[in-house]
Amino acid sequence: MSYKAKFRVWRGEGGEGKLEDFTVEVNEGEVVLDIIHRLQATQAPDLAVRWNCKAGKCGSCSMEINGKPRLGCMTRMSTFAEDETITVTPMRTFPVIKDLVTDVSFNYQKAREIPSFTPPAGVQPGEYRMQQIDVERSQEFRKCIECFMCNNVCHVIRDHEENKPAFAGPRFLMRIAELDMHPYDVVDRKDSAQEDHGLGYCNITKCCTEVCPEHIKITDNALIPMKERVVDRKYDPLVWLGDKIFKRSRSTKG
């Protein structure tokens, strides 16, 4: 069944622009990205949109559909009423290059600021020995497709541009948690999670988890456990005392 849908799409460059109205054909089984492509093919040949796999695995077509961060390729048109006007805008937290394409280099900058996986000295690649249960927590975080919708929806930077230098965003705080939980990583990441990457800014309102297309429990499994690890390090006198009494090293983990 085909029908004509009403779309409002953000058009403009460098932040300036406006919502433009379109009436466009929709066919059964299509997703929002299909409709954007039809607009390109029929009415707006210069409409810019970033896309790649059309399978929800590359994280390219992040956009905001009726105000919610979504992947264009995974948002079925059948979830909307036929008489509904569908508004499509670029991610709000990042600067616009053109139309629906944003400059997400903020995220690449934050990624570079995190020290990479660091195995113990003397252990060579191929010598790591660990059991599945030791790494499966971290494997959940490896499902991330880097669509950056979690960083986009996080109010810490979405509503407060001034926090960008101090806050890495949920995607990269999750990366820190992944490495901190890794049995073979020796870099101490707790102090820096709080001091350098702004974990304390997170008020665990879980929007990152709500929008994650991979359904990673970012808040419950990465951010809160990382907050608890920071508490061990910085705010819990009993843990400090235990470390002293039992001569536990503060950089190695059980």
């Binding site: 105000g67 919610k68 400059d103 280099s105």
Partner: peptide
């Protein structure tokens, strides 16, 4: 490959979409 600000011809104008609405969400 993702285009970044470094590729931009007019980086000074580059900013977020100037949407006036507090939210465009249509659900409750």
């Amino acid at each position: 490959m993702t285009q970044t600000a470094a590729d931009s011809p007019a980086p000074a104008r580059r900013q977020r979409a100037q949407l006036k609405e507090r939210t465009l969400r249509t659900d409750q």
